[in-house]
Design a protein around this nucleic acid. Structure first.
Lengths: 204, 204, 204, 204
DNA sequence: CATGAATGAGGGTTCATTCAT
DNA sequence: GATGAATGAACCCTCATTCAT
């Protein structure tokens, strides 16, 4: 149950989306420690058993929340980034669209952060394999390599820069949760300027 | 209990330190979700009750772990930073000494990150008040303001830059945990170059 | 949970009744100090979690035991008392029906006494508000006032008399537990004579 | 340790009295459920170990509290009762002196009630043997028998009357704890009148 | 004699999960 | 498909008791 391989009926997809949304909202509001299946089910307006029916277990549900947010983020950001033509513009588009996505879905992002760094699956291992988080950074690494080859960017370690960008972005959601008055559009422009300065060739 | 006001006996301090260390190691290895008092006590080689005897509760223990790591970090970094004379040098010293501290205590830092972003105290609130985390960024904010006034730094939002620096650093411990082969000394130099470029006046 | 407002399913009511009964029996036999949820659950033949599932907590369970016994007692006594026409007859009916109820449910009464005078709820306060126990005495106070106005009773403090009647009755269950050979019907008649003498006008 | 058979040194007696007093105060104020040895020791101003040293265990301490209060009560009441010459006067003296003792030592009496009806010794049995409480009633039984023989009292079951008197008195301490404004002197006079009426020969 | 650190059992409670209905 | 009653393990915490100092 819950495997993406099977074809899911429309109603099935709707239920899953509904529960995933309720899980994200519960985690964001009450913290991962208070997010029991009972509470999530209650918020979704369904019984406890229905969650177990649609997901293989809590581990699965948590994973699906993360994936859903990630995929929605990718879907929102990709067209914006692809519209940019130069590596520098693409980096700016990446930052702007990512911050915009956070601004539009603060709860979802907060939930993802709590899950990734605070949820331990039953067995005791980690929810995601060591390389899974690299996937997110990989796009940036590729972008930086490309820009370095065509002379847009200076010579730096693309991995360090990529993870610094990720760190800069991941820090936003928790801060925004505590200080909702922050202007995220201005924040994004600051980041654009910051990383433009950090990456551009010195003579440019 | 746990108040710094009371005088603690030598043996008391030793036990507390021992338990705090065991807690940090357990959290770093198995994740905050698996860090039960039973497991922490087992790792410390003491019975479960000892932990409750020396700490007011789990919340207290988690808080003490964070404070211990934070204070040790401040003690390690402060002299290095104060030895630097210019804002740019101080920023570099901040980055180098912080990364060096992470390299020397990877478990402790990993534990702190898990606690801060993944532990929910009993009542449901947060372990630290909303402003507590700002204290860490405040030092950087002050440093940036100073450098902007004396012309060392360009004109940017000191808050955004401070939190970006924090994000860049906080990202290291989890990554280092998954990829111990990373050369943190080189990583630090990359960060120094990165933020030097990001902060310096454009004409310099 | 436990609110009378919600509609309870049949099976829900049955389980609650079963657990309340097991709690009363455990308390009556082993004392309130030994009446852990584990023991109560074991006696009820269910797992420990079932108790927590059906009751909000131990405090709630204890309260429900008292209320159940109180309500059953009221249901048993009220028709008998209302059938009596004069205050003196009603007092006699009160005593007889109350003793009869104790004789029929010795365990339940013993349990209630142990809970009311020996159980401390979690917070540290009292299980029942200071005025709650007065409710029981209030009926007697009203009865005595009425009888004093119509000349059936002599002039005494209705409150003192009411609490003395309650004390006389509350003493029975523990005594009966230790000396089951006591003839409670005769005991009731003695009490009727005792309080008839204590309350009647001297010239009568 | 703690056996009454051995001769106790003066300092030993002082320590025991001190701890017993602290135990009674703790129980009366916080309830039997909160009266841990640690709390009692703290209130007595001694370490936890000292309690274990002077008493065989918690069971022993609880028993000693009850006995101490009982003996002090007997010491206070006996001379007053013995000064009375007739059975009716002795009954009145019993009631007045008992209520006076409660008024003078409300905490101690409250503590005794909590222990007797709320404390279960470790083994699971009862703190006092089934007949122990009868001892208290026995004096009253003897008094009533005597009065019936010399014609002071009417013909009633002395046991029922004795336990009713006890119930009437035992009800006072808890009520007084909740309603300190009650005038216990007047309460005593009401009881004297009540039981005088309940016991006297009808023609008298 | 006195201390207080340490123990280990047991307390109440929460919760992911299962399954008869 | 959906329900919610039931389970059993694990959670944190309290506490009477022991014992080296």
């Amino acid at each position: 149950m819950g495997q993406p391989a099977e074809e899911l009926s429309f109603i099935e997809r709707a239920r899953r989306t509904q529960i995933i949304g309720a899980a994200a909202a519960t985690i964001a509001e009450d913290g991962i420690g208070q997010a029991s299946l009972a509470r999530i089910a209650k918020r979704a307006g369904v019984s406890k058993g229905v969650v177990s029916y649609h997901f293989a277990g809590k581990d699965d549900l948590m994973k699906q929340v993360v994936l859903a947010v990630y995929e929605a983020g990718a879907a929102a950001m990709t067209p914006v980034i692809q519209a940019a033509t130069t590596p520098r513009d693409r980096l700016a588009a990446y930052l702007r669209s990512n911050v915009a996505y956070i601004a539009a879905n603060p709860e979802a992002l907060q939930a993802v952060i709590e899950i990734v760094s605070g949820y331990s699956p039953e067995g005791g291992g980690r929810l995601f394999a060591p390389g899974d988080d690299e996937v997110i950074a990989d796009f940036l690494v590729g972008l930086f390599r490309e820009g370095q080859q065509d002379g847009s960017f200076r010579d730096f370690d693309p991995l360090v820069m990529a993870h610094t960008v990720r760190g800069a972005i991941d820090v936003i959601a928790p801060r925004h949760a505590r200080h909702p008055e922050i202007d995220l559009e201005a924040y994004a422009e600051e980041l654009v300027a910051l990383f433009d300065a950090a990456t551009r060739r010195e003579s440019s």
